[in-house]
Design a protein around this nucleic acid. Structure first.
Lengths: 344, 344
DNA sequence: TTAAGGCATGTAATCGTTTACAAATGATTT
DNA sequence: AAATCATTTGTAAACGATTACATGCCTTAA
């Protein structure tokens, strides 16, 4: 019963070679003769040796892990992205740290320290509201750990990022309504100050114009992506004298909240009002009615972000291989929450 | 423009003391005189020193991070638990790794290596289907890294775990149906072989008995927790000659799939059939109809699991402070998917 | 035949901390 | 006044890998 874990020394002793040779046999097999490689591999198997990551990390000055900063880990939207990130990172031998970027000062200094303490080799930020200053903090050795922004990002940022075609998605949505014959189209926005909110509003307006319709400011209802905010928007909608017959929601959850509230007053979707969401979360296809929505490739966002980050890490933060920002396409998926307007 | 990050040497030099003193001033302030502590702290501020985690980890033989193994990171159910774990871990200075325990052999060896390579100090396993052998693998220094199982776990396991009262929840659900006057109550199960599936079936039977009803095997429909499986179960239900007037679903998503399919055939919930779910995921309160369900404290599960794990880590895996397994309570939340049976 | 160069290997420095041990100082007890 | 002890600090040895450099050997070319 061995009480201590085998080190590279033990392997070297068992194989009758130096530790340098063992290290080379494992990490640069073509730098040793075939014979010794064989001997070493046998000694490794015999001793059950696995290299100690911590020692390796210290020597190589890299931690083989990255960190994902999400505003809220419990949000299913982010969890799909994280899944995508892990799918790329795991096989590459990188660990994925997750942290919540809540609002407490505590959280923030923790993130800064993460960087300064050389604990992670790079970041993927899912929180567009995160302090810019926070991310400009330099890490050890003067260099900043590479950062990729995914999904949300404040305008004017120079951080490489992966986004989806929010404008195009919103345009698609409006055009779909218009094609069905709607002329009074409204929009429930995302939270104030969010870049996604802005781009989707922008796309909404563009779609209205492209369809030759009149943009009406009073048809814009403020939301916040959440179920609750959609619910509240519905109450405003119910009080409107002149109601839009179609509502484009900035998120699926908003759409659910909206429909949920409406159904309590007996307003039927799509019979009385048509609804389109944004995201295509899992439950959307099973809602009653099944939700017509703009589908985002969430897992893919994570995969692309991770791929970009590793490229940056490999090239010491100076990649010209990857373009600054990748834009992924969204698609309109038509289900049952949209129909021609009620004939008045 | 400093190109290198300050090390403890730099601080020592600036403060005119030894590195040992700097280290002590930072990690054991009461071991140095107040005067030197002051000087050191000033030097730290001046140089912008932050201790290198990798060096610290190597020396102390601990990585200050834990690993969460989930079957599927994109599943919202797990993401709430992970959020809870992070809420505890972050402030304690621990990083949280997440990994997917897919089915490939690759994934598995990766997890074993994670342990052997001393990369993490402990595990929280959310996957009850994970190979037992995998987790028995010893880490460095002969000791196994502590493991906490959360939610799902194979019967007979000796691993400390945190679970919820699945049996009690199912009993509650059935009793609620019975109280409304239902006598023909059915159940859509979880996936085969899953411990949660079994305990909920067990609770279902217990509830039937406790309500003085007759247990009917043909009222048990096989499901798999997913939306799709609920959808398919509905098709079976529709084909039944003698239909239950109330269905207890092993998950909320199953319930959504079930209701969704039914609504396509004009079967109305709760008018024609009552439905209860299990989990109380976010959207449940906004479904149409709002879903009556058994609410699980998902974030709390994560927090408790993390707390237990850190206790184990601190006490070198030999804790007698925490009991082996903690059981958390669930609560029935009544919404709009349940009503008295249709008067025939 | 000799110089040059490539290959396989070993020696030892290095990464940046923490900490066991030793030493020095000052306070307290006998 | 000597012995004891606590307090503060420094010296140097870990932790366990990787890797720069040195060495010796063998091949090849002039």
């Amino acid at each position: 019963m061995r009480s201590e874990a085998p080190t590279i020394q033990d392997v070297a002793r068992a194989a009758g070679v130096s530790t340098a040779t063992v290290s080379r046999a494992l990490s640069a097999p073509n730098r040793v003769s075939e014979r010794t490689r064989h001997i070493v591999l046998e000694a490794v198997a015999e001793t059950g040796y696995v290299a100690n990551e911590m020692a390796r990390n210290l020597r190589q000055q890299k931690s083989n892990s990255i960190c994902v900063i999400a505003p809220d880990l419990s949000n299913p939207f982010f969890s799909f992205i994280i899944s995508g990130i892990e799918q790329i990172s795991g096989p590459m031998g990188y660990g994925v740290f997750v942290t919540e970027s809540g609002l407490s000062q505590n959280d923030k200094t923790r993130i800064v320290n993460l960087m300064a303490a050389a604990r992670v080799d790079g970041f993927i930020v899912l929180d567009g509201m995160l302090d810019h200053s926070l991310l400009k903090a330099r890490g050890r050795s003067g260099q900043r750990a590479p950062i990729i922004a995914a999904c949300e990002w404040k305008a004017g940022s120079i951080t490489p990022s992966v986004i989806v075609d929010n404008v195009g998605g919103a345009v698609e949505a409006v055009k779909h309504f218009a094609a069905l014959g709607h002329t009074n189209i409204g929009h429930i926005t995302g939270p104030d100050g969010n870049i996604l909110t802005e781009t989707r509003i922008q796309g909404f307006k563009k779609g209205i114009e492209a369809s030759g319709l009149e943009y009406r400011d009073e048809f814009i209802l403020e939301g916040g992506f959440s179920l609750e905010s959609g619910y509240e928007a519905a109450e405003k909608w119910l009080r409107m004298a002149d109601r839009p017959t179609a509502m484009f929601c900035a998120s699926d959850r908003e759409a659910f909240g909206f429909i949920s509230r409406l159904s309590k007053d007996g307003v039927r979707v799509p019979h009385d009002v048509s609804v389109i969401g944004f995201d295509d979360i899992e439950v959307s296809g099973y809602f009653v009615p099944a939700l017509t929505t703009i589908s985002q490739p969430r897992v893919e966002i994570g995969r692309v972000a991770a791929t970009k980050l590793f490229d940056l890490i490999k090239n010491d933060g100076e990649s010209n291989v990857v373009e600054q920002t990748s834009q992924l396409d969204v698609t309109l998926v038509v289900r049952e929450s949209t129909a021609p307007p009620p004939s008045s």
